[in-house]
Simulated assay, not measured.
Amino acid sequence: MELFDQIVAFCKEHPIQGALYASLFTWGLTGLGASLVFFFKKLNRAVLDGMLGFTGGVMVAASFWSLLSPAIENSPGEGFMKVIPSAIGFALGALALFGMDKWLPHLHINFKDNEAEGVKTNWHKTTLLVLAITLHNIPEGLAVGVLFGAASTLVGVEQTEMVIAAISLAIGIGIQNFPEGFAVAMPLRRQGVSRRKSFWYGQLSAIVEPIAAVIGAVAVSFFVPILPYALAFAAGAMIFVVVEEVIPETQRDKYTDIATLGFIGGFIVMMSLDVGLG
């Protein structure tokens, strides 16, 4: 645990750098998952649905254990008043992703070409698939950054706990990013895209995570009063993505049970990381 303690100490001293490094880690695992396209010719649909279900489970668990719970704990007041900042932030996060979903052209995995969402465009299907996963990754990066930024506003044991929560979240998101990278690269390969380009686009889908993480960390570090709103905002964005993007992608075939089991597994993994490391 000495290495872990050193990482925690570094992140307490340099929370914004911690957010950057943590999100680079999650991006790297996306690339690692996408690299499997060099070793496999196809991806079984049942495996894909299970992976997507796992992703959804991690995101839902993270939304509560890593984001909403600390948002409420760090809100002033008692009773219903204590929940108001989290409720407002949660709603704003969902609305923000709702707007992006309506505006950004994208195509979900397992969906047909004519089912693309967002502004109508002639962009290639490859681009639309990558943008769909990019939508997943924006709130994930933001969530990591907000937690690291939150740590900079605290002291003592509370700061340590927040840093550990941020690291736990980064690990959880990184774990689910691995199959997500594979889930992006393989459909592209199946459409005739070269292995190298499939890998490139697969890892590229997570490039927004470091950007969103740094923005979230800086915002919370310099505007402390927005902390509970920012934590809940990230949670609302993640829940919207799960309900609007991830779950529908797993319900297109006959493997819904596998997707459900994957969801439960992802939830357990993220819950265990957050509670266990905390």
Rank of each mutant, 00 (worst) to 15 (best):
Met1Pro: 13
Leu3His: 05
Ile7Leu: 06
Val8Asp: 00
Ala9Trp: 02
Phe10Arg: 00
Cys11Gln: 00
Pro15Met: 05
Tyr21Cys: 00
Ser23Val: 05
Thr26Phe: 01
Leu29Pro: 01
Gly33Asp: 06
Val37Gly: 14
Val37Lys: 09
Phe39Trp: 12
Lys42Ala: 15
Asn44Met: 04
Leu48His: 14
Asp49His: 10
Gly50Ser: 06
Leu52Val: 15
Leu52Cys: 11
Val60Ala: 04
Ala62His: 02
Ala62Met: 07
Phe64Glu: 06
Phe64Arg: 05
Ser66Thr: 02
Ser69Pro: 02
Pro70Gln: 04
Glu73Trp: 06
Pro76Thr: 08
Glu78Asn: 10
Phe80Tyr: 10
Met81Pro: 03
Phe90Leu: 15
Leu92Arg: 03
Ala94Leu: 11
Ala94Lys: 05
Phe98Met: 12
Phe98Val: 08
Gly99Asn: 02
Met100Ala: 15
Met100Arg: 07
Met100Tyr: 12
Ile109Ser: 10
Ile109Cys: 09
Glu117Cys: 13
Gly118Val: 06
His124Arg: 09
Thr126His: 03
Leu128Trp: 01
Leu129Asp: 04
Leu131Ser: 11
Thr134Ile: 08
Glu140Cys: 13
Ala150His: 04
Ala150Lys: 00
Thr153Gly: 10
Leu154Pro: 13
Val155Ile: 14
Met162Cys: 09
Val163Gln: 00
Ser168Thr: 03
Leu169Met: 15
Gly172Cys: 06
Gln176Met: 15
Gly181Ser: 00
Gly181Glu: 03
Met186Cys: 04
Pro187Trp: 06
Leu188Glu: 02
Arg189Ser: 12
Arg190Asp: 13
Gly192Ile: 00
Gly192Tyr: 00
Arg195Tyr: 07
Arg196Leu: 15
Ser198Thr: 01
Ser198Asn: 01
Phe199Asp: 04
Gln203Phe: 10
Ser205Phe: 00
Ser205Arg: 05
Ile207Cys: 05
Ile207Gln: 04
Glu209Tyr: 10
Val214Phe: 04
Gly216Thr: 11
Gly216Asp: 08
Ala219Asp: 05
Val220Leu: 09
Val220Ile: 13
Pro225Gln: 01
Phe233Glu: 03
Ala237Gly: 15
Met238Gly: 07
Glu244His: 11
Glu245Lys: 12
Thr250Glu: 10
Thr256His: 12
Ile258Gln: 08
Met270Gln: 14
Met271Gln: 07
Val275Thr: 15
